[in-house]
Simulated scan of single mutants.
Amino acid sequence: MKNKSIVIYLLATLFLLGCNKAPVSFEMTVDSVNELKGLVLKGVALSGTVAVGCIAEGTPFVIYRNDKKVLEQTARILSVSKDGHNKPPNGEALKKEFVTLYVPDVEVQKIVAGDVIKSSVVSCRKTSLAKFK
């Protein structure tokens, strides 16, 4: 009887932990990492295609490698393109768009292609969000 109680307790705990995970509002796999050594921009530029949701300028995000947190940052969008054409800057990148994010003061070795960027914060305008509902 004691073992049965332990198993029920463990299953209930695992269920509750799964329910506490924030839904992902943005996800992107890093395709390329480029070092920036300019006078103004120093750090890295991360590029990839938005797989889930959208991200807006100033949105907090986390970079993961093998489901382990590598780095927390705030979105700084350098460029956005769709179907190979640059979009006028509006401070957002939507699903299926190719985006380059700027991460200041980070060494290029810290982030690698294949890392995954996620955010649970919904930060895009309602008009943008309506595009992928």
Rank of each mutant, 00 (worst) to 15 (best):
A12C: 10
N90P: 10
C124S: 11
E92A: 09
L16E: 03
P88Y: 08
S123H: 10
Q109C: 10
G53C: 04
N34Y: 07
V99L: 02
V106K: 05
S119G: 09
S32Q: 13
D67V: 05
E97C: 02
N34S: 08
L78H: 11
A75H: 00
K68Q: 14
K82M: 13
L14K: 07
S81H: 00
K118I: 04
V108C: 02
S25R: 01
L46R: 04
G114A: 00
G48L: 03
K4P: 03
V24S: 07
E27V: 12
E92S: 06
D31H: 10
V106E: 09
G43S: 02
G43T: 05
I8E: 08
I8M: 09
S79K: 05
A22W: 14
R76K: 09
L129M: 06
I8A: 07
K2N: 15
I55M: 09
L17A: 04
F15C: 15
H85A: 12
C124I: 15
T59G: 03
K21R: 13
F26E: 05
K133S: 07
E35T: 12
D67R: 11
V103L: 04
L17V: 10
N34L: 10
N66Q: 05
N34K: 12
E72G: 12
S79P: 09
E57C: 13
V99C: 11
E92W: 06
L78T: 09
V116M: 09
M28T: 04
V33S: 05
Q73P: 06
V116H: 10
G38H: 02
K87A: 11
K4T: 10
L16V: 08
M1K: 15
K95A: 07
L10E: 02
V103P: 01
Y9C: 14
T74A: 08
V112A: 06
E27D: 13
F98G: 13
C19R: 05
K2W: 12
F132Y: 10
N34A: 12
G91P: 00
M1N: 13
G38A: 10
A75G: 05
V44N: 09
S119C: 05
H85L: 10
A56E: 02
T100A: 14
K95V: 14
Q109R: 11
G58L: 06
I63T: 04
G58C: 09
S120Y: 15
V7F: 02
G91C: 00
F15N: 14
L11K: 10
K110W: 00
R76N: 12
K96E: 13
N66F: 01
K37Y: 04
T29V: 11
S25K: 01
N34C: 06
E72D: 12
G48M: 00
V40E: 11
K95D: 06
V62M: 00
L101K: 02
V116N: 04
E107G: 14
E97S: 02
L101H: 00
K2F: 14
F132L: 08
C19V: 06
A12P: 05
M28A: 07
N90G: 14
T13H: 12
Y102H: 03
G91R: 00
V30D: 03
N34P: 08
Y102Q: 02
R76V: 11
Y102K: 01
K42L: 03
T74N: 01
R76L: 13
V108G: 01
P88G: 15
V52S: 06
E92H: 07
V50P: 05
S79E: 06
